[in-house]
Amino acid sequence: MIARARQLSVVVIVLCGAVGVMSSTQVWLHVRLTGAAAHDLTVNGAVAIPVLAPLGLAVLALGVALSIVGLVLRYVFGVIALAIGVAQAFLAAQVAFEHPTSAVARTVTDATGITGDAAVAALVDTVTTTMWPAITIAVWVILCAAAVFVLVTARRWQATGRKYRTDAAPRASAGPLDAVDSWDELSRGDDPTRDDDPR
Rank of each mutant, 00 (worst) to 15 (best):
Q26K: 15
L33C: 06
A111P: 01
V95P: 02
I68N: 02
G45D: 03
A83F: 13
A111Y: 09
S67G: 15
S102T: 14
L60V: 13
S24D: 09
I49Q: 08
V47K: 02
V43T: 01
T101R: 00
G35R: 05
V104N: 01
I68T: 05
V64G: 10
A92Q: 12
R32P: 03
V51P: 05
A96Q: 15
A38M: 04
V72E: 03
T101I: 08
V59A: 04
L60S: 08
G116I: 03
E98N: 10
P100R: 11
T101Q: 03
H39M: 08
V43H: 04
D110F: 07
A58F: 13
I84S: 09
A81W: 14
V95T: 09
I80V: 15
L29N: 14
A38D: 11
G45A: 07
A53G: 13
V76Q: 08
V72S: 10
H30S: 06
I84V: 15
A93L: 02
V95G: 06
M22G: 06
D110G: 10
G20W: 06
T25I: 00
V108D: 09
L57G: 15
G63H: 07
R106L: 13
V69R: 14
S67A: 07
R32C: 03
A89E: 01
L91G: 06
A36C: 10
Q88I: 04
L52D: 01
V19C: 01
V59F: 10
L52E: 00
V27R: 13
G63E: 04
T107G: 08
T34G: 07
V47Q: 07
A48Q: 05
S23Y: 06
A48L: 05
A38H: 08
I68W: 06
V69H: 11
L71V: 10
T25R: 10
A18F: 14
